[in-house]
């Protein structure tokens, strides 16, 4: 340790002051600095900077292209979605028409059947009424006949002579009442 100290002290004694102000080394430093700067300048301006500029420009181009492609794809996707939506809407509309048509047909059939049934029912009603009227007529006649006969018999049994016309008139008057 001690000897090292001495050696260092000796070295320092041989080069006193600030090495920065040792003018004898200035020429050397300036010469090598100029060499260095010229080399760096040529390396940078001839090789490195144009290359990096080209790489950056290329990357910019690639990014722009990719963005354009993405934009294209996006437009295409939008178009496809629109087409899909349109197809869906068409299909839906068609389905609606078909449903409406079917409904109308069914309605028509139903109306037809209802009308026919109504007509049949009406016809049957008329017939039945006619029959009922006939039966009623028949029954009236029978009642009249029976009443006339009975009245004649009763008059005869009472000892009177029954006038057919009077009896009939009397029965008719009663029947009306």
């Amino acid at each position: 340790m001690a000897s090292e100290t001495h050696n260092a002290a000796d070295a320092a004694a041989s080069a006193p002051g600030m090495p920065q102000l040792d003018f004898s080394t200035f020429g050397n430093q300036i010469f090598w600095l100029m060499v260095t700067l010229v080399v760096i300048y040529f390396v940078l301006s001839r090789i490195a900077l144009p290359r990096i500029a080209a790489v950056l420009a290329e990357r910019q181009g690639t990014i722009t292209n990719d963005l354009a492609a993405a934009e294209d794809l996006k437009v295409k996707a939008t178009e496809a979605e629109e087409a899909y939506n349109k197809a869906l809407a068409d299909a839906r509309a068609e389905a609606q028409t078909i449903i409406a048509q079917a409904k109308a047909e069914i309605q028509a059939d139903l109306d037809d059947a209802t009308a026919k049934a109504d007509a049949e029912i009406a016809a049957k009603l008329v017939e039945s009424e006619k029959k009922i009227a006939e039966i009623r007529e028949g029954a009236m006649q029978s009642v009249k006949d029976v009443a006339k006969d009975t009245a004649k018999e009763i008059v005869a049994a009472m000892g009177g002579k029954a006038d057919a016309r009077t009896v009939t008139a009397a029965v008719n008057a009663r029947m009306k009442g």
Binding site: M1, A2, E4, T5, A8, A9, A11, A12, A15, G17, M18, P19, Q20, D22, S24, T25, G27, N28, Q29, F31, W32, L33
Partner: peptide, 29 residues
């Protein structure tokens, strides 16, 4: 025995040999 030579690191010296530092000497610079 502490060594204080903060400026020694800035000394320009020739890489080969011990001669004086001329204009074109190859130094640590």
């Amino acid at each position: 025995g502490l060594v204080f030579h903060p400026m020694d690191q800035f000394i320009v010296k020739p890489l080969f040999g011990d001669g004086p530092v001329g204009m074109f000497t190859i130094t640590n610079v």
